[in-house]
Amino acid sequence: MVPTSSYLILSAVLFCIGVVGVLIRRNVLIIFMSVEMMLNAVNLTFAALAKHFLQLNGQIFVLMAMVVAAAEVAVGLAIVMTVVRHKDTTNIEDVNLLKG
């Protein structure tokens, strides 16, 4: 029987790896992938706690998070494609239109 805390530790580790990926990479695609990894880590937390408390609410919430992630990826990748079409780069250092 695996204790719930080990699932929580694993999901924290995965979340931190995702945060580090967002911070150190400059390729917008890899930043997106890191965000997806963070979402997945949170989903793992929800599922582990659903098992811990023997309630299905956590699993329902994981489904909602998956829907949000799917919509986010669709819009985000469309934005990436538009940026690539306009500026021909995936480096976020070159995309600073809102920098004032």
Binding site: V2, K51, M66, A70, V73
Partner: peptide, 23 residues
């Protein structure tokens, strides 16, 4: 392992099947 079989199937279909392919 967490006895969330439906979530496992959805994870494969949505994430591995749709999102990674989109990437």
């Amino acid at each position: 392992l967490l006895q969330a079989q439906f979530l496992a199937a959805v994870q494969i279909i949505v994430y591995a099947g749709a999102i990674v392919v989109l990437f």
